[in-house]
Simulated assay, not measured.
Amino acid sequence: MSATTATATPAKPLPTLDPVSKGFWDLANRGRLSVQRCDDCGHRHYPGAPVCPRCLSRQQTWEPVSGRGTLLSWVRFHRAYWEGFAPDIPYVVILVGLEEGPMMISNLVGARAEDVPIGAPLEVVFERATDQINLPKFRPRRG
């Protein structure tokens, strides 16, 4: 009788929840996309920062947004910079311009990148990674 060993696929790196990003991940965990909004000047930005990049105020709030955006660009990775991505090679990373202004880097799901023209409308969907991490990804907008 021969013994076999199962080789587990290495895990993908996960975001670190810190005091600045915690609000984003709390809302994502409930299926809501958010950006940081300055309570003093109203500037919306992503990723979060300890101070507003416009006025330097420390008063920041994570504000839910529509989850709609536009495909600005994409790239197909043919190399796994982390072992956990090796089974996904090649994979697509996209740049999304959110309706509310900020841009976000994510992944395209539900379509091949070459079938989605630059400028196409997108909508957020979430992929559960752990009990605390619900990853925002984007698909072509329906309807």
Rank of each mutant, 00 (worst) to 15 (best):
R139A: 05
P102E: 11
R76H: 03
G101P: 07
P10G: 11
F24Y: 13
N107I: 14
F77Q: 13
H43R: 13
A49T: 09
Q36P: 02
W62E: 04
F24I: 11
A49F: 03
P50Q: 01
W62T: 05
D115W: 05
R112P: 00
L14M: 03
A120W: 08
T5Y: 04
E83S: 14
H78Q: 01
V35L: 07
L17W: 12
R37M: 12
V75S: 15
Y91T: 08
K137F: 04
G67M: 10
R30H: 13
E114C: 02
A86F: 12
M1W: 15
D131M: 04
P53V: 11
D131A: 15
G143A: 11
A28H: 00
A49Y: 03
P13R: 03
K12P: 00
L14Y: 06
L108R: 02
Y81I: 05
T61F: 06
A6R: 11
E83N: 10
P19G: 02
E63M: 07
C55F: 14
M104E: 13
T7Q: 04
R141S: 15
V96L: 05
P50C: 02
W82H: 07
N29F: 08
A129Y: 10
L14S: 05
L108H: 05
Y46W: 15
Q59G: 11
C41Q: 13
P53N: 09
V65Y: 02
A111L: 00
V116N: 03
F138C: 09
Q60L: 02
G110E: 14
S57V: 00
S21V: 07
P136W: 01
V51G: 07
P50S: 00
Q60F: 04
A28R: 01
L71P: 03
I105Y: 14
V124G: 04
Y46F: 15
D39Q: 14
T70K: 09
T4C: 03
T5F: 07
A80R: 00
A8K: 10
G97R: 15
S66E: 11
P136T: 02
R141M: 15
G42S: 12
K12E: 11
S34T: 11
G101Q: 07
N29M: 06
V125W: 09
D115L: 04
C52W: 12
L71G: 01
P136M: 06
R76W: 02
R32L: 15
N29G: 11
G101I: 04
L95R: 10
A11G: 01
P121N: 02
P19I: 08
L56N: 01
N134T: 03
F138M: 09
A6Q: 09
P121E: 09
R76N: 12
N134S: 15
P10A: 11
A11L: 03
W82F: 09
E63I: 07
S106A: 15
S73W: 01
R44K: 15
L98E: 00
K137V: 06
D88Y: 09
W74C: 00
G143Y: 03
D40V: 14
P140M: 08
A113P: 00
E100I: 06
P47T: 13
G97D: 15
N29L: 06
V75Y: 10
A3F: 11
F77T: 11
V75K: 07
I105L: 15
S106P: 04
T16G: 13
Q36I: 10
